[in-house]
Simulated assay, not measured.
Amino acid sequence: MSPGDEPGYGDTSHGEDRGYGGSGQTRTRLPDRTGDVYGGARRGRGSSSRSLVTVVGVVVLLIAAIAFANRGGDDSSSGNGDGDKARTSPTAASGDRPVDTQTSGIPSGYAHNAQGAQSAAANYGVALGSTGMFNTGQRHAIVAAVYAPDVAAARQADVDKAYSSEKFLTNIGLKKDGSAPAGQTFVSRIVPVGTKVTSSSADSATVELWYTSLFGLSGEGSRNPVSESWYTTTYQLKWINEDWKVTDFTQKDGPVPVGRDQRASTADDMTKAVEEYGGFTYAR
């Protein structure tokens, strides 16, 4: 394994859970941009009545989309198999519990089907993108739990070399032992957005994991503040010893959404969020 699967490796610009509160009302906010962010031509200003019709049209379409999505979710629950569920509503959760056990703190013991392979890819991605990869003992446990035994044995030395490189650690603002400087908190998390099986057989599966990553140092004086990035990692999985294991992977950027005009949180707020908000066990 190379650290390419770790959000932030080789890129000092990399940056989890956001809580939302309010009065319970839903508001539709139109972008305050001067042009089409996707490359379209800028439109001139119309009459107030035309603007009202446009806003009403957006709301109607939004309501219709929500209704359609809910209908798709209901239909998927009555499918005859995993393939039917994925086709009718690709973003809907199956509702089945992914695992009942853990190995080195990582969910394990997935179902021997496409759904289980997707759940494994999501949870393994979270482990491989965690701060544990920068600690020798935790890194060895993660690699042993996630990868196929022969792959883990062959790549462990390369993984150790990559994650303990003094130049690499210095570039991302960490100390030689992989810990954060005094007064700062190291953040390395990935948040799965969705998974997709691109090919599968009885004992193998190729799963794409789309996720956003948070990477950097939170604290006063940080030269690498926590920032957000988006990636898709394709995992090659095999059914080994009654569980799905990673045998290889490739990674690419995106899809990347348009950024909102939200103000960045303070270092104290970011540190507090990272310390107080825990992660999840992901299921398909």
Rank of each mutant, 00 (worst) to 15 (best):
P255H: 11
S49V: 08
S164G: 13
W239R: 14
V56C: 04
G4C: 03
M1V: 08
E208V: 04
K175N: 13
W210I: 11
L30Y: 04
V58W: 01
A127E: 07
A65K: 13
R27K: 15
D248V: 06
V55G: 03
F134Q: 10
S179T: 14
L174S: 04
T198F: 01
T103N: 12
S265I: 07
R27C: 05
S76F: 02
K196E: 14
K196Y: 03
S229A: 14
P181I: 08
G105S: 02
S23L: 09
T34P: 00
D158K: 12
D96Q: 06
G22T: 07
S13I: 00
T212A: 11
A152R: 07
M133V: 01
D82C: 04
Q184N: 01
S200R: 11
D261V: 02
V274G: 00
V55A: 10
G4D: 15
S51E: 13
V207C: 06
N241D: 15
P3V: 11
T131L: 09
L174I: 07
G8P: 01
V256C: 01
V193F: 00
A148F: 00
E16Y: 10
M133R: 12
D203E: 11
N135E: 14
S119C: 04
Y147K: 09
N70K: 13
L209T: 00
V256D: 13
N113Q: 11
V56H: 10
V151N: 06
A180S: 13
V226M: 08
F215L: 09
Q118F: 02
D253G: 00
V143Y: 10
G39T: 08
Q25C: 00
A127Y: 10
P255S: 14
I142H: 06
A69M: 07
V191F: 07
A154H: 08
P225H: 07
P181L: 07
G79Y: 01
L237F: 01
V99I: 08
S265Y: 05
G221H: 06
P31S: 11
H14S: 14
G259A: 15
V159N: 08
G219N: 05
A67H: 07
V53S: 09
G279N: 04
E276K: 13
D100T: 14
T185N: 08
G125E: 12
K245A: 09
G8L: 03
T12S: 12
P90F: 07
D261F: 02
A180W: 05
R155W: 05
G178Y: 02
V197W: 03
S265T: 01
A127S: 07
S47I: 05
A264F: 02
R223V: 01
G8F: 04
N224P: 00
